[in-house]
Simulated scan of single mutants.
Amino acid sequence: MQIDLTGKRAIVTGSTAGIGHAIAKGLAEASAAVIITGRTQARVDEAIEAIRREVGGTQLDGVAADLGTAEGCQAVIDAHPEADILINNVGIFAPQDFFETDDDTWDHFYQVNVMSAVRLSRHYAQGMKQRNWGRVQFISSESALNIPTEMIHYGMTKTAVQSISRGLAKTLAGTSVTVNAILPGPTRSEGVLNMIREMAEKEGISQDEMEARFVKENRPSSIIQRLATPEEVANMCVYAASPQASATTGAALRVEGGIVDTMA
């Protein structure tokens, strides 16, 4: 299968590192013009240069904005009013006891993980509908189904975006615009690796040992029994963004290594 996204413009939110960066690189390799977003211009510039070094002469641009705010989302829209592919990847996570998670934390997670996707999808999906072609993806998580007790506030946001994804797909029924949720499992992203590094230092063991222990203790139902790589998740996203995925919509596409113990 040869995925060719020549002539398509893709926006990947939160794409200066981790899963978002791998998705942006994968789309660029498929010849899409890609817009990188991040919180600082320095991080955006670094991400663009990294992809340019690896992929070569591709069309890359970037926007520095806080997508946890309406103003930040509008900055992306103002800079790039149209897109053929929107990957709602930006997100935050942090373990925290439910009884110690205050209203401000709940609201912050909701604004970044949910409302960024709502605001951008509300704008870009309309243009896709008018042009009768488009791809919208919401990066959810296996935590949307397997709510982690140590991050209930995070799990809630991932369940929410999965719900929005399904509803938007139905709203766009009969068009050539597809909408899907992608459900990664624990992935070797920058944030996860930093968390595991801190845990390893606290326990006085190597990071490799801590990774193995983390999966065994926190995701014992994993079939692959390891963390996924950002590239493994990105491969699913690039396929779902392709013309070949035209009959895949309203779906929850799992890339979680079999953690969720169902066949549906």
Rank of each mutant, 00 (worst) to 15 (best):
Q111W: 00
G127Q: 07
S140M: 09
K129T: 08
K129P: 02
V118F: 14
V118T: 13
M115N: 13
V114M: 02
Q130C: 03
Y124D: 08
Y124C: 06
T105V: 14
Q111C: 00
Y124M: 07
I139F: 04
N113D: 11
R122G: 02
S143Q: 09
Q130G: 03
W106V: 04
W133S: 12
N113A: 03
F109T: 00
R122Q: 14
A125D: 00
H123I: 04
G134M: 09
S116T: 14
Q130L: 14
R119M: 05
M128Y: 12
Y110W: 12
H123Q: 05
W106P: 03
L145F: 10
S141A: 06
Q137T: 13
R119K: 06
W133P: 13
A125K: 02
L145G: 00
G134S: 09
N113Q: 03
S140K: 06
R122S: 04
A125Y: 01
L120K: 10
M115H: 12
N113R: 04
A117N: 11
N146W: 08
W106N: 02
A125P: 04
L120P: 12
A144L: 01
N146S: 05
G127D: 06
M128H: 09
S143P: 02
Y110C: 02
G127N: 13
R119Q: 08
S140E: 05
N146P: 00
A125F: 01
H123S: 05
H108I: 00
L120N: 12
L145Q: 12
A117Y: 02
G134C: 08
V136N: 07
N132C: 04
V118S: 07
Y110N: 03
V112C: 06
R131C: 06
W133E: 10
R122Y: 02
Q126V: 12
